[in-house]
Amino acid sequence: MSHSRVSLRIRRPWRFAAEATALIVAAVVAFPLYWMVLSAFKPEGEIQSTEPRPWTTAPSLDSFRRVFQQEDFGRYFLNSLFVAGVVVVASALIAFLAATAVARFTFRFRTTLLIMFLVAQMVPIEALTIPMFFLMRDLGESVPGVGLNTLGSLILPHIAFSLPFAIWMLRGFVKAVPEALEEAAYLDGASRSRFLWQILFPLVFPGLVATSVFSFISAWNDFLFAKSFIISATENSTLPMALLVFFKAEGNDWGGIMAASTVMTIPVLIFFVLVQRRLVSGLGGAVKD
């Protein structure tokens, strides 16, 4: 990692000011998160109190108990992990190939294609749900494992929705790999697929990690497909369904909502912590023009 040493040259008072600012901003940004976790631990009745306190004297695990005691909670968790995992890997591979095509080749409709990739994201997703519903239903008749009620019916749409962004991001990383490297590889007798998988792929791997974070979050936090496509097979539901239980017409269970959200956010944070070093070194590649 080519860490910039510029920071060391900054005059001391300025650096202290900068660090103080960073810490204050971090505290402000983290405060809503703190409030979420705090509300999850507050006893019922204290969450909406006329004397809001940033602490609680009687922490309670009741809200978490209501989350974990849901039937099949563990199963939902594993389903979410599986869906997000497959989406991350599949969309990274597909996007890598496509990004190589648009970054390394000139061909007709290249620019049009790039813009087309974005178009699907411009439509309200509810508008696409009905056509996709019937598509999944019909697809399920001929291809087992992707029809309605299967995890495949969640995986496929998520891959489709995370691809455009992944291709756009990865394009920058692929572009960053010097042309000379490619030519040298061919001179050494490497085949095109050898170059692709054994030289280019490892080079843009940090970029793949970076884009994976986005697909992971979108698949992990999705409500709409989960509640539209998993109809009778509740054993194939995902984690957000365990959160939605707490929203009710005659009064939301705030404690449950906060506890379930905390439980949902933690795996993403762990995923982040694991990838954050690669993420930062990875994204940098995108600027090398």
């Binding site: 509640k227 939605l244 929203f247």
Partner: peptide, 12 residues
């Protein structure tokens, strides 16, 4: 879940 009933029932 009550919050998903509209989608579920339409899907049914």
């Amino acid at each position: 879940p009550i919050d998903t009933r509209a989608q579920k029932i339409k899907a049914a």
